[in-house]
Amino acid sequence: MDHLDKLEAQSIYILREAYKHFGKLGMLWSIGKDSTVMLWLAKKAFFGHCPFPFIHIDTTYKIPEMIKFRDKIAEEFNLDLIVHTNEAALKEGMGPQEGRLVCCKALKTEGLAQVIKEHKFEGLILGIRRDEEGSRSKERVFSERNVDSKWDYTNQPPELWDQFKTDFKKGNHIRVHPILHWNEIDIWNYIKRENIPVVDLYFAKDGKRYRSLGCAPCTNPIKSNASNIDEIIEELKNTKQSERAGRAQDQEDAHAMQKLRKEGYM
């Protein structure tokens, strides 16, 4: 087995554990490269079937190409797709002008919490990776959230030998992280090997490309001439920039991500 085979096998194992243990299970699909890889892994784990719904938290601020790509893939892969928007917050005028972290919390964190409540999800699969940022580097594969989606990160349970947290209080839910152990280059190598479709925004146009995708007002493209996967991989091997450097909310505060994620952010 080579490196990617091993990563893939572990992710499939995790997905199958989640499917076995949670009656109400959903996968968060942000349309970005990571969650699209996860969708692919689910196809493999379940032999072409996707036995749970996919959830997109639509802030209505997404880059338009992302929504187009979402609808195309959802149809091609025949996904059971739940699109949810925190309408109430939008009605009250929520947007990045209210403050980036406030906006993230309302449109993403709270939007997500609404879906979880509405569908009574016990398990939620997310495509976060340890190498993205500090608070994610400390995550468990099965990570518990309480009724209010809060993360008790200073008191995480032991997790060893792939025996994951599957016993928890009713009303709480488990965030499942099947690609926690992958890094950014792994993702691109795998996309290349498996020929996985990704949104064009990742490929450079006019000297710019998106390295990480989010809401339009808070996501900046990076300077790049990498217009295909090989060039992206080459670029990443040589860059010293962090992946989420273009994500404005991360830069708001010394511990911005930790604070957001403590409240239930992805």
Partner: peptide, 19 residues
């Protein structure tokens, strides 16, 4: 020690895995 609590107390609370 990415957590604010860790830095404040100068102590590691939870494991970090990095490549």
């Amino acid at each position: 020690d990415a957590f604010e609590e860790e830095q404040r107390q100068g102590i590691t609370i939870d494991i970090t895995q990095l490549q």
